[in-house]
């Protein structure tokens, strides 16, 4: 397997930063999934696509808009009507979907090289993200596993909550370094650690 270069590299500084004398309240990492795939169903074919996700990824989607689930290795969430983002630590997810999602059911788009996944965790994760995104990050409004499509400064992102105080953010790869720098600046006041 060829080692994929991170777009964050020049700005990725492992260690503690900012105002961390009283403890680190934010943990920033790049999760580097091997596969990031978007699957979309034609109108009326949503149930077949959801069962294809269960077959290929072994993940059972909960009902409802923006619903999702993560098992720590693979993750899936709805980001639009009949459309889902699926990520896997391993490569090859797009090819696996292409065998199951026939042209009559919908489409498969491989974004493994097009998105960068950044994880923000810690007791101040909601606080820091609220500086960027005008959505409700409180647990009752944004449950674990759920996904959201939103923007900051007109740049599109997808966010999945993968823990009570943990979020995975999928950003355009070409924009990832800029977003990463902004995320670091926003985390300075509470103290953050890059791992």
């Amino acid at each position: 397997m060829v080692e994929r270069q991170s777009p964050l590299e020049p700005e990725f500084h492992v260690g503690s930063h900012g105002n961390f004398e009283h403890g680190v309240e934010i943990l920033l990492t790049e999760t580097r999934p091997g596969s990031i795939v978007q699957v979309a169903a034609w109108p009326g074919e949503e149930k077949k696509l959801i069962s294809a996700i269960r077959t290929v990824a072994g993940l059972a989607l909960p009902d409802g808009a923006g619903g999702g689930v993560s098992d720590g290795v693979k993750s899936v969430f709805g980001f639009a009507p009949g459309k889902f983002t699926v990520a896997d630590e391993a490569e090859g997810l797009a090819a696996a979907f292409a065998r199951v999602v026939t042209p009559a059911i919908g489409t498969v788009t491989d974004l493994s090289h097009g998105r960068t996944a950044i994880r923000i965790a810690g007791p101040k994760a909601e606080w820091v993200l609220a500086k960027f995104f005008a959505i409700d990050f409180a647990l009752p409004a944004f449950p674990i596993g759920a996904g959201r499509s939103t923007t900051h400064h007109d740049i599109f992102v997808q966010i999945q909550r993968t823990g009570a105080d943990q979020f995975d953010i999928y950003v355009f790869r070409s924009f990832a370094r800029s977003f990463w720098k902004a995320l670091c600046h926003a985390s300075e006041e509470v103290g953050y650690e890059v791992q």
């Binding site: 808009a65 923006g66 005008a134 939103t150």
Partner: peptide, 12 residues
């Protein structure tokens, strides 16, 4: 939004 819930007009 019927899918996303209440969002700021800047997203539309």
């Amino acid at each position: 939004c019927p899918y996303c819930g209440p969002r700021d007009v800047i997203e539309f």
